[in-house]
Amino acid sequence: MEITENAALVVVDVQKGFEEEHWGKRNNPAAEENIAALIDLWQETGRPVVFVRHDSAEGSRSPLRSGYEGNDFKDFVAERRGKGSGPELLVTKSVNSAFYGEPSLDAWLRGREIGQIVIVGIQTNMCNETTARMGGNLGYDVVFPLDAMHTFGLEGPHGWEASADELTRATAISLHGGGFAKVVTAEDVLRGASAGAR
């Protein structure tokens, strides 16, 4: 697949709070390894990287609340921040979409004439999917490497339950089938980005 020379990697909510039992059973134990590989390649090739942090609302008991250790980026992300030769941005948000954070992700991308974004991070069917849908609506070419993210099982109305894998499949079908994003693998992106950097 084609990854442009200025495609932005958007690393969503890779925070310590998601390691707490509060969330339940997760999927894709390889997510962190794949996210790290993508950040490394982006930084090596001078491409732009956007780190997104979820700051839960004041007074919240969320593990992602500001001032709590769970709000911090996981170590492998924190260690990589500021290490690339390309542009870097920190976006903070308190809702699902990274496009509703501070500073404006859309303005930052457009100011650099970036038309393609690659979304990775946590959670697949929540902030990642919401950001992908909005990115697609805004006209970006959205790439969604499904194995560079993870989520947790959920309980819904009527006693319905879905596992993390079931929710991941539903997200993939909705985004890809609905034309919001190209759902691919981390390896697809790594190959495409390596070729595009030559």
Rank of each mutant, 00 (worst) to 15 (best):
Y68N: 03
S94P: 06
V142M: 06
P157C: 00
S62W: 06
M134H: 15
P87H: 11
R169E: 13
N128I: 02
K182R: 15
K83G: 02
I117T: 08
L146T: 14
M126G: 11
A132N: 10
P87L: 04
G178C: 11
A162I: 00
G111V: 07
G178F: 10
M126I: 15
G101S: 10
G153I: 09
Q123E: 13
T130F: 04
G121R: 02
V183I: 05
E155K: 12
G156D: 07
P103S: 02
E129S: 08
L105W: 03
G115S: 14
G115M: 00
G121Q: 05
H150M: 12
L64Q: 09
L109T: 09
K182S: 12
S85K: 15
D147M: 01
D55P: 03
E88R: 04
M126V: 14
S163P: 03
T124K: 01
T92K: 13
E129Q: 14
V183Y: 05
C127N: 09
E113Q: 12
F76L: 07
A98K: 04
P103K: 01
E113L: 08
F144S: 07
V77P: 07
I173W: 12
D72S: 13
A148F: 05
G86L: 12
E88F: 04
L175F: 10
E58Q: 14
H158F: 15
A162P: 00
E129A: 11
G179A: 08
N137D: 14
G86D: 07
G101E: 07
T151N: 14
G121I: 01
G115I: 00
V95Q: 10
L64C: 06
R61P: 00
E161T: 15
A98D: 06
G121T: 01
G178N: 08
T131A: 04
W160S: 13
V183S: 05
V91S: 05
E58Y: 04
P145N: 07
C127D: 11
A98F: 07
P157W: 03
G86R: 09
G178L: 13
E88Q: 14
V77S: 09
V143W: 07
A170F: 09
F152M: 04
C127P: 01
G159S: 06
G178I: 12
T130G: 08
C127Y: 01
V95D: 02
R133F: 06
T131N: 07
F144C: 07
S85P: 00
A170L: 12
G179K: 08
E129N: 08
A98L: 04
M149K: 01
G159C: 03
A57T: 13
A164F: 01
L175V: 02
N128Q: 10
D72H: 11
A181Q: 03
S62P: 12
S66H: 08
S104M: 03
E102F: 11
T92C: 05
G179N: 06
Q123V: 15
N96A: 11
G121F: 11
R81H: 02
P145C: 07
E58P: 15
N128D: 14
S97L: 10
E58N: 02
N96F: 10
G67R: 05
Q123M: 14
V142Q: 04
E129P: 00
F144A: 07
F76Y: 15
Y68S: 10
M149Y: 03
P87D: 15
R61S: 13
R61E: 12
L89C: 01
G111Y: 09
F76K: 00
K93W: 02
D55E: 13
V120C: 11
R80Y: 11
A57C: 00
A98Q: 01
S163V: 06
D75H: 08
